[in-house]
Amino acid sequence: MRDAEKEQVLRDVLEHKGEMVSGVVERIADHSDGKTVYLELGKAEGVLAPEEQIPDEVLRPGQYLKVLLLDERKRGRGAQVNVSRAHKALVRRLLEFEIPELQSGAVIIRALAREPGVRSKVAVSAHQEGIDPVGACVGPKGVRIRSVVGELGTERVDIIPWADEPERLVANALSPAQVSRVEIDRESRTATAHVPDNQLSLAIGKDGQNARLAAKLTGWRIDIKPEPAGAAEANATAVAGAPPPGDAAG
């Protein structure tokens, strides 16, 4: 490919930088730092580096794949661009592709946190009266969220309602655990979530994953403390009135 042609192809492709594109796996090459996957993206070639892949995802030549378009691959031969399957924006683009209310702006993604291949949490709100933002994203019988998860393999995607009040937002973000009350320390930007004893492991999650993603999603440091069942019932009014968290799994 001549330099002028290469530059034109790259200009055309990079007009869609940050967007989701579809490609076909051409080949997979072993390198010292792992396997690099090369995809056909029309006239350009996408390069999916090891660090941009979903951990443990098995890919094969001829497979159709949705990826996030990043930038030009400077060291590449021909018209090569870097793409990603691990970037959190891929989850956003997949949701926008599947959910008409996100496309129209009737529902808005307010925050998103992701651990690729394991779990994502997405906080949504309605920009139009009469719309349930969580229900719109999950879809009838979960059909919409299943389509998104189907593109991510075994990754779980939780949809939760956004709240402007940090107490409610933190409680929602710890879904599927039930939270009795949340105390906020604005100076240290720490939220202390009190949960019933039987909800503690669910709130923390395997290897701390649920709490870690909730902290990323909300922007608050979250401390989780157990309390006896009787105390939990007495303090439940602290989060009463909050809409029930929406939990969608693949």
Rank of each mutant, 00 (worst) to 15 (best):
P245K: 14
L217P: 00
T237M: 12
Q53N: 03
P116G: 06
A173E: 04
A248Y: 13
L69E: 00
A89Q: 12
A106Q: 09
D247Q: 12
G46E: 01
P50D: 02
V118P: 00
K43E: 04
E57N: 07
A236W: 02
V143S: 10
P166Q: 12
R27A: 05
D158A: 14
E227T: 13
A231I: 15
I159P: 05
A232F: 09
R156Q: 14
P116L: 08
L102Y: 04
G76A: 12
A234H: 13
G150H: 11
E51A: 15
V9H: 00
A106C: 04
D247T: 15
T192C: 12
P226F: 09
P166R: 14
R168Y: 11
A215K: 06
L112D: 00
S125N: 08
K17D: 00
I54V: 15
V24N: 01
D71S: 13
D30M: 13
K17T: 03
S22M: 12
M20A: 14
V25Q: 01
V195K: 08
Y38V: 02
P116A: 13
K43F: 08
H16A: 10
D12I: 09
A29Y: 04
E57G: 06
A4E: 10
E98A: 10
W220S: 02
P228F: 09
A177Q: 07
T218V: 02
D71L: 01
L10C: 05
G135S: 11
G105R: 05
L202W: 05
N210Q: 10
V25D: 00
R181H: 12
V179E: 04
L217C: 06
G18H: 06
A211C: 10
E151S: 14
G208Q: 08
H31Q: 12
E101Q: 11
A203H: 05
P55A: 09
K141I: 01
R146M: 09
A79C: 06
I224D: 00
T36F: 06
E40R: 15
A249R: 15
L169D: 02
W162T: 02
T154Y: 04
V138F: 14
A240V: 01
L48D: 02
K74D: 03
A136M: 08
K141V: 05
G42Q: 08
E165S: 13
A203T: 02
L65A: 05
I99C: 01
V47H: 02
R73P: 00
Y38A: 09
G117E: 09
Q209E: 07
K121V: 00
H16C: 01
L112R: 03
Q80A: 09
